[in-house]
């Protein structure tokens, strides 16, 4: 564990807490893409299948439970909670996210480190996480407003994988044989997808006004 990895995990945790805070306190999920949340639930479900078979540390298991619990409860809130699901703009959240799942599964079957059930699903979760934000970014362009908790959520979510990239660079130089091209490329693609959002997000800080 290094400072970049810890900062990345804390940023990721903060992103989830910001979203839960928004949905739970103001009982609204306006501007939040249910499709992105469903993709993240699948990402965690397929990445943490080994949660009961391989113990790494209390921290690791705890964080996996937090990410699993929060992503599924956010999906539950947005689908079934009486007040929240009314605020979900279904007409705008139309990105065909199932078109992302299949190519990621095929790619995981073709490119992986080991051809085992757990490894292929784990690799699938990496590819899927890289593109999971797309429905949310498309929805953001339609709702045209980043000046709210959803904007903070996306900012933190994009930042966490960027910090993980620093962690991978650090580990590459400090740990012999630490090479994971699949993870690195998927993480890089994921972070690059946020470049456009980061640009407008920082403009908003500099301009000090809501950016369209």
């Amino acid at each position: 564990m290094n400072i970049f990895r810890l900062a990345g995990d804390m940023t990721h945790l903060a992103s989830v807490l910001v979203l839960l805070l928004k949905i739970h306190t103001i009982k609204s999920c306006a501007g939040v893409s249910l499709r992105t949340q469903e993709l993240y639930a699948i990402v965690f479900a397929t990445r943490y299948l080994d949660i009961f078979t391989s113990f790494v540390s209390v921290y690791n298991t705890f964080m996996k439970l937090v990410f699993l619990g929060s992503s599924f409860s956010i999906v539950w809130y947005m689908r079934y909670h009486k007040a929240v699901h009314r605020t979900y703009d279904r007409e705008q959240d139309t990105f065909r996210h199932w078109f992302l799942v299949l190519p990621c599964l095929v790619l995981a079957l073709l490119i992986h480190e080991k051809f085992t059930f757990l490894e292929v699903l784990w690799t699938f979760s990496l590819y899927l996480e890289a593109v999971a934000i797309l429905p949310q970014l498309v929805l953001l362009q339609r709702t045209r407003n980043i000046d709210n908790l959803t904007g903070q959520y996306i900012f933190l979510l994009g930042g966490y994988r960027g910090l993980y990239i620093l962690n991978w660079i650090y580990r590459y130089f400090t740990e012999p044989h630490f090479v994971h091209w699949i993870t690195w490329i998927a993480g890089l693609v994921q972070t690059l997808l946020y470049a456009d959002f980061f640009y407008y997000y920082f403009l908003r800080f500099i301009g000090g006004r809501g950016v369209e």
Binding site: S54, V56, S57, K64, Y164, N167, F178
Partner: peptide, 10 residues
Amino acid sequence: STESDSKDEL
């Protein structure tokens, strides 16, 4: 690389 080191991350 050993199995664990690539799976010790979230």
